[in-house]
Simulated assay, not measured.
Amino acid sequence: GLARQAGALTFVDSVHYTPHALVDVGALGCDFFACSSYKYYGPHVGILYGRHDLLNALDVPKLLPASDTAPERLETGTLNHEGIVGAGAAVDFLASLAGEHGREQGRDLSRDRREALRIAYGQLHAHGDALVRRLWDGLGTVPRVTRHGPPPGTPRTPTVSFTVDGISSGDVARSLARRGVFVSNGDFYATTVVERLGHADGGLVRAGCACYTDASEVDRLVEGVAALTTD
């Protein structure tokens, strides 16, 4: 790639990408790759992959008695053992979502976690796409609502951002919370994008569809927003 030709190293920040696509660091050909398991139902643990030769060669500060070989030379002190176990359990949870498919096919996917993950990711995409379309179309019927971002049918994650004319994003979120629907509001660190959308002061409302979200919850959200615009 261009980075290699220029003698540069490549670092992939995949915090948002990893929950939505099955990653193969070998196929990517990157030097470093980082993500966090909290994005896929795990604990707040940072995960760093690095090429073994680079991890051994990097000039990093370390204690004199620490190991000189990777990965221990980058790990100082007592490790976050419970977080590490939780991160692994989160991967197992994702793989378990393919269980029903495996049983239907008469296959034991417990012996091939990678294949189970491949199937699970496919199922999650189908599930998320259907819910996002329902949410997008539902919000489109509500007066004074503006939906932001690409429509269903284009590459996207199962998250929809929207605004309600005349009502702050915070008020929308609080109103939905009283109905038992949890959404986020603000700029979500995308400050420049939100500014260019003209919502620097109030931000956007963001609703995401997880593996456990169902159609009735999407409908409850749409009904809650509709009630706000008719009160």
Rank of each mutant, 00 (worst) to 15 (best):
residue 150 P to W: 06
residue 175 S to R: 13
residue 68 D to W: 07
residue 95 A to D: 06
residue 38 Y to R: 08
residue 100 E to V: 15
residue 86 G to N: 05
residue 5 Q to W: 03
residue 23 V to M: 14
residue 118 R to Q: 14
residue 5 Q to G: 15
residue 144 R to T: 12
residue 135 L to P: 00
residue 150 P to T: 14
residue 15 V to R: 07
residue 22 L to K: 12
residue 193 V to T: 14
residue 110 S to G: 09
residue 31 D to V: 01
residue 211 C to H: 15
residue 167 I to M: 10
residue 176 L to P: 10
residue 143 P to T: 06
residue 173 A to P: 05
residue 182 F to M: 15
residue 191 T to Q: 08
residue 134 R to N: 00
residue 154 T to C: 04
residue 178 R to I: 01
residue 27 A to D: 12
residue 160 V to P: 09
residue 124 L to K: 13
residue 202 G to H: 15
residue 211 C to P: 05
residue 92 D to N: 06
residue 97 L to D: 03
residue 2 L to G: 03
residue 89 A to M: 09
residue 153 G to T: 03
residue 64 L to T: 12
residue 85 V to S: 07
residue 183 V to G: 07
residue 43 P to V: 03
residue 92 D to F: 01
residue 79 L to S: 13
residue 102 G to F: 02
residue 150 P to C: 08
residue 48 L to H: 02
residue 94 L to Q: 04
residue 124 L to M: 15
residue 17 Y to Q: 12
residue 111 R to C: 08
residue 6 A to C: 11
residue 112 D to Q: 14
residue 177 A to K: 09
residue 166 G to N: 01
residue 107 R to V: 12
residue 123 Q to D: 15
residue 184 S to F: 00
residue 134 R to H: 10
residue 203 G to V: 07
residue 51 R to C: 02
residue 204 L to I: 06
residue 176 L to Y: 11
residue 103 R to I: 08
residue 196 R to C: 03
residue 218 V to R: 01
residue 128 G to D: 13
residue 41 Y to K: 10
residue 118 R to T: 15
residue 160 V to L: 15
residue 79 L to E: 11
residue 200 A to K: 10
residue 225 V to D: 05
residue 98 A to Y: 01
residue 78 T to K: 13
residue 109 L to K: 06
residue 208 G to T: 15
residue 33 F to M: 04
residue 122 G to E: 07
residue 179 R to C: 05
residue 212 Y to S: 09
residue 67 S to Q: 11
residue 182 F to H: 10
residue 71 P to A: 08
residue 86 G to W: 05
residue 56 N to S: 12
residue 82 E to A: 10
residue 225 V to Y: 02
residue 99 G to I: 07
residue 153 G to D: 04
residue 189 Y to S: 13
residue 208 G to C: 11
residue 162 F to S: 05
residue 152 P to S: 10
residue 65 P to E: 01
residue 167 I to E: 04
residue 193 V to E: 12
residue 182 F to V: 15
residue 62 K to T: 14
residue 63 L to K: 11
residue 188 F to G: 05
residue 141 T to W: 00
residue 225 V to H: 03
residue 190 A to M: 13
residue 35 C to A: 11
residue 217 E to D: 08
residue 157 T to L: 13
residue 210 A to D: 13
residue 11 F to G: 01
residue 32 F to W: 06
residue 101 H to L: 06
residue 44 H to G: 00
residue 63 L to R: 14
residue 231 D to C: 10
residue 40 Y to S: 02
residue 122 G to F: 06
residue 151 P to H: 10
residue 191 T to V: 14
residue 171 D to P: 01
residue 72 E to Y: 11
residue 172 V to Y: 11
residue 177 A to T: 09
residue 167 I to P: 04
residue 221 L to W: 06
residue 48 L to N: 02
residue 119 I to T: 11
residue 89 A to C: 02
residue 34 A to M: 14
residue 201 D to S: 11
residue 61 P to I: 10
residue 223 E to N: 10
residue 119 I to Q: 09
residue 147 R to A: 13
residue 191 T to A: 12
residue 112 D to P: 07
residue 228 L to T: 08
residue 55 L to P: 01
residue 70 A to P: 11
residue 209 C to Q: 14
residue 146 T to M: 04
residue 133 R to P: 00
